[in-house]
Amino acid sequence: MGVMRIGHINVKVMDMAAALQHYEKVLGMKTVHTDADGNAYLKCWDEWDKYSLILTETDQAGLNHVAYKVEKETDLDELQQRIEASGTATEMLPEGTMPFTGRLLKFNLPSGHEMRLYATKECVGTDVGSTNPDPWPDDIKGAGVHWLDHCLLMCELNPAAGINKVAESTDFMMNVLDFNMAERVMVGPNGDIPAATWLFRTSTPHDIAFVGGERMGLHHFAFFLNDWSAILKSADVMAKNKVKIDVAPTRHGITRGETIYFFDPSGNRNETFAGLGYMAQPDRPVITWTEDQLWRGIFFHSGEESGSFTTAYT
């Protein structure tokens, strides 16, 4: 019971036509619906629910909300009580508030980011179906990403002022929503300040991550690819389409993932992420990265800070 996985993300874009071109042609998603307000709903080929990305055209970039899917409708009622009991206000949005989607439990994380939980979304099946399926469909475009995998939210961290929204949001996710911690970065003279955390409900090392910064925001959202060769092919696709690559193909020490970071046409950072990392389990010892080795954790090969990786986000 409880949260199963990331379900969808609603991001702001400044040019819908450019955004659709990017998510369809470069990432290989398909537009499945456009609502009366002009929001576009997109799906990856290996996902079975109706959509995982909603693009909203406005005058800025960044996150509107991120949603996680729970197993049962009754989970929403139980979690609403637990969230309210923790001192966080909630709102239950009725079925039909979002198309193809049941009730949505809406609240803000301690960091300020809007999160929603839902149990029901129309199941349309993967593009290869569920009966004697092929391993992949014939009409994949671009990188052909499999599914929306995780997101990384930037949280205000100012130890001198006693502000640590990374710690507060992490505690909320673990204590109230039963997430487990896979890895963390600890900083400060005594190494006792949590500056970043990677949390999971699936069996992979992260379904959400929090990193400390000067203001809240969306650092990136990531899509799954099978392996290193798929990552290199996705880099080819980005070059062919003149996409700004932020970080060339490399490996993370944290989560062991193979990765590329790049920007959508509104400056939202995307990641294609490969590899299941390792088997994440609630009883697996938490991995700690120390301040002197944190960039080795982030970019394992170079071990060095890269450009504006921590300062540029939407």
Binding site: M14, Q60, A61, G62, K244, D246, F263, D264, P265, S266, G267, N268, R269, G307, S308, T311, A312, Y313, T314
Partner: peptide, 8 residues
């Protein structure tokens, strides 16, 4: 050099 696309 950030996102180069007007967002960050």
């Amino acid at each position: 050099v950030g996102c180069l696309n007007g967002g960050c």
